[in-house]
Design a protein around this nucleic acid. Structure first.
Length: 570
RNA sequence: CGGGAUGUAGCGCAGCUUGGUAGCGCACCUCGCUUGGGACGAGGGGGUCGCAGGUUCGAAUCCUGUCAUCCCGACCA
C-alpha cells in the first residue's frame, strides 16, 4: 500500500472531546471517525485491525470445534417477548416499529435468535453438543457512552452459543471456551485475567469475565483478587470475609439521643466519638418502583448489583427525598428499619451480623438511637461492596483491588432461554428436553481499544504485531533521491513477496512528518532508506523496543518475514 | 432524570460584553525553496456562524424556543 493513497488523515492534536488514551489515539491516528454519540465509523486502518482480531478468534474457535454463522442485526419483538426479555431488558434495547407497525429491535445480543434457529434444526441428542458463533454488530443504547470504542453504543462482538444435553457436557465446553479465549487474547498480545462475575441481563449462574487489568480509570470495572490463591471477581460479584473488628460500643443502655444536623456517618461517628462500623446505616432504594431499605454497617457500601440479585429486581435507583419522607416520615440521615418492618422490604447486609450496642437512626429528624441491639436475629444477606484489605473467601488472605477492561465473557445459561422459548431436542428415551446452553462473547472493537490502552507511548500506538493494521512501513527519507526511491520500492516489493503487509511512505514530505506518522499509527517495524544507502545499508527500527540497527535491505526483509511467519505457525 | 459548559471551515480555536456583511493556526490546492524527527516564503479554495422564530435599517453577536455534544451528579445512613 502506498501511503500517498492510504485513506487516512492524522491530526497534529489530540481530539478535544476524548478522555481515554485509546480514544485519543484512534481519532488522532485516523483509525475511527465519530458519526454521532457512541457511534463510530471504522476507517481502513481500523477495519484491518478488526479483521485481524476476528481472524485470530475465528482460527481458535474453529480449532476448538465451533462453527461460524451469521445472524440478523434487526430482530422481531415477538422473539424477545417469548424469552421474557422484552419487558426486562430496559432502555438499552433500542426498539422500533416497521411500516406495518410490527415491533422490532436492534440486537444487543443474540440468545433469542440463535435459540429460534436451532429449534427445528437440532432435533436429536445425537447432534449435540454443538457450538455456533458469529461476528456481528451489536447495538446497546448505553446511558452514557464514553471512551470511544471502549464503551460505544454500536460495536462489533463475537458471540457464540453452545447447546448440550447435560451439565457435564456444558462444563466441558465451558472449559474448552475458557482455554480458547486465553489463546485468542494471548495471540492478540493481551494478558487477561478471568474473574468471576455477575451474569447481568444475559442471565445464568456460572460466569466469568476476561479482564485486561489497567489500573487507570479507563478500566470501568473494579476487580478484587487474591495474591495467595487464584480467587478473583468483579466487584459486582465478589465476596469477602470481614476483618475481625470491634463492633460494640460503650452505650449499654438503649436510648434516643439528639444529633442535630449530623447527617453523614462520618459526622455521626465523630459526634458520638465512636467508629463508623458501630453505626448501622440505612440506605433507601427504589427497586422496580418498590421501596427497599438496606441496613448495612456504617463503614460499608451497598453493591447495587448484588442487592438487585438479592431481591430479584431489575431496575434500581436511590430513593428521592420525597419518597424517603413518604415511606418513613423521616429524612435521609436519620433513617432506620425500626417500625417499618411490615411496611417495606428490609434487607440486612451480612456486615450487620454480630453488631452490638450499636447506633442507628431514630426515624426522626436530628435523632439517633444508641445502644441498640437486634430484638430478634434477622436474616443476613451479602449485598455489600468488598473493600480492599478484606479477606479472601477462599483462603482468608487480604484481597487487592485493580481496574479492568472486560474484553470477553463466558456464561453458563442452562435452560434460561430454551425453556421459555420451548426449544427442545429428543433424548435417548424419546423424550423432549430443553437444550442446556452456554454463551460466550468477545468485544472485538473493545479488544482493539484495550490493546492500545496497554500498548502506547507519547508518540502513539504500539500495536502487537498480530493485530497491527500493517506489519511494516518503508520510509524513503527523500523520495526525490532516485537511489533512495528505487531501493525503497525494491524492499517494498520483496516484503510483499514474503507475505509481509507493508506500506511504503512515498509522500514528498520531510522525514520528520513521515516518522511522526509512522510512530503515531504504530507500525511494528520501520525500514528507513536514507543516506546510508550509498553503503548499501538501511535503518531497521522496532517500534515496541525503540531498538534501531543499521543493516542491509535483505537482512531487514528477512527479520520481518521471520517474525510474520511466526504468527502463522502459532 | 438533575446541574454545568459548549456548538463559528475537515481539526483546534478567536470574534459575541459595546450589532455594521467573519478571522487565526493546522490540514487542503498552486509555485518556489527545503529534505533524518510534524520547515519556510508567496499566492489560493473552502463556512446560509447547530436549527427555528423574534427584536432591528442591519444579528455569529441581543431575546425566545429547539436540537446536538461534552463534563459532573443522582441525594447514602
Amino acid at each position: 500500500m502506498k501511503m500517498s493513497k492510504l485513506f487516512v488523515q492524522t491530526l497534529r492534536d489530540f481530539p478535544q472531546d476524548a478522555e481515554a488514551m485509546s480514544h485519543k489515539l484512534l481519532v488522532r491516528a485516523g483509525y475511527i471517525k465519530k458519526l454521532t454519540n457512541g457511534i463510530y465509523s471504522y476507517l481502513p486502518l481500523m477495519k484491518r485491525v478488526i479483521s485481524k482480531i476476528e481472524q485470530i478468534a475465528r482460527e481458535e474457535l474453529d480449532k476448538a470445534g465451533a462453527q461460524e454463522l451469521s445472524m440478523p442485526f434487526v430482530q422481531p419483538a415477538e422473539l424477545w417477548q417469548k424469552s421474557g426479555r422484552w419487558q426486562v431488558y430496559g432502555k438499552e434495547l433500542l426498539r422500533m416499529k416497521d411500516r406495518h407497525d410490527v415491533e422490532l429491535c436492534l440486537g444487543p445480543t443474540h440468545e433469542e435468535v440463535i435459540t429460534s434457529i436451532v429449534d427445528g434444526i437440532l432435533n436429536s441428542y445425537k447432534q449435540l453438543p454443538i457450538n455456533l458463533y458469529q461476528f456481528q454488530l451489536k447495538f446497546r443504547d448505553e446511558i452514557r457512552p464514553r471512551f470511544g470504542l471502549l464503551r460505544g453504543r454500536e460495536f462489533i462482538m463475537k458471540d457464540g452459543y453452545s447447546f448440550h444435553t447435560s451439565q457435564e457436557s456444558l462444563d466441558e465446553e465451558y472449559k474448552n471456551m475458557w482455554n480458547a479465549y486465553k489463546r485468542i487474547f494471548d495471540r492478540c498480545g493481551l494478558e487477561t485475567k478471568p474473574v468471576q462475575s455477575d451474569s447481568g441481563a444475559i442471565g445464568g449462574k456460572v460466569s466469568h469475565e476476561f479482564m485486561v487489568l489497567t489500573e487507570t480509570q479507563t478500566g470501568e470495572d473494579d476487580v478484587f483478587y487474591c495474591k495467595n490463591c487464584d480467587y478473583s471477581a468483579n466487584s459486582n460479584h465478589s465476596t469477602s470475609i470481614l476483618n475481625e473488628i470491634e463492633t460494640t460500643t460503650n452505650f449499654i443502655e438503649e436510648k434516643i439521643v439528639d444529633t442535630p444536623n449530623v447527617k453523614t456517618i462520618k459526622d455521626l461517628a465523630e459526634f458520638l466519638n465512636i467508629n463508623e462500623n458501630n453505626i448501622l446505616k440505612s440506605v433507601f432504594y427504589i427497586v422496580d418502583s418498590k421501596p427497599v431499605m438496606v441496613m448495612i454497617r456504617g463503614d460499608k457500601e451497598v453493591e447495587e448489583t448484588k442487592l438487585l440479585n438479592a431481591v430479584g429486581g431489575l431496575e434500581i435507583r436511590k430513593a428521592t427525598e420525597d419518597e424517603t419522607s413518604e415511606y418513613t416520615g423521616s429524612k435521609a440521615g436519620f433513617l432506620s428499619f425500626i417500625g417499618l418492618e411490615d411496611k417495606i422490604k428490609i434487607i440486612f447486609d451480612l456486615s450487620a451480623k454480630g453488631m452490638k450496642n450499636f447506633v442507628i437512626g431514630a426515624n426522626e429528624v436530628d435523632k439517633h438511637i444508641v445502644g441498640y441491639n437486634f430484638k430478634s436475629t434477622p436474616e443476613f444477606v451479602d449485598v455489600s461492596l468488598v473493600k480492599a484489605g478484606e479477606l479472601c473467601p477462599n483462603c482468608h488472605k487480604p484481597l487487592f483491588i485493580t481496574r479492568g477492561i472486560e474484553v470477553g465473557n463466558i456464561f453458563q445459561l442452562g435452560t434460561k432461554y430454551s425453556k421459555p422459548m420451548n426449544a427442545t431436542y429428543t433424548d435417548e428415551n424419546g423424550e423432549n428436553k430443553p437444550f442446556i446452553m452456554g454463551c460466550y462473547g468477545i468485544g472485538i472493537t473493545r479488544t482493539a481499544a484495550a490493546a492500545i490502552e496497554k500498548h502506547h507511548d507519547d508518540f502513539g500506538i504500539i500495536w502487537p504485531l498480530a493485530i497491527a493494521p500493517y506489519h511494516c512501513i518503508v520510509v524513503p527519507v527523500n523520495i526525490q533521491e532516485e537511489e533512495q526511491k528505487k531501493v525503497a520500492f525494491e524492499i517494498y516489493e520483496k516484503l510483499q513477496k514474503e507475505g509481509v503487509e507493508v506500506v511504503i511512505d512515498d509522500r514528498d514530505d520531510r522525514a520528520g512528518v513521515k516518522f511522526k506518522d509512522a510512530d503515531l499509527i504504530g507500525f511494528p517495524y520501520r525500514i528507513t532508506v536514507g543516506k546510508t544507502i550509498k553503503d548499501g545499508l538501511v535503518e531497521f527500527k522496532t517500534r515496541q523496543t525503540g531498538e534501531m540497527v543499521t543493516i542491509t535491505p535483505d537482512e531487514a526483509v528477512q527479520k520481518i518475514a521471520e517474525e510474520v511467519k511466526k504468527l502463522k505457525v502459532n
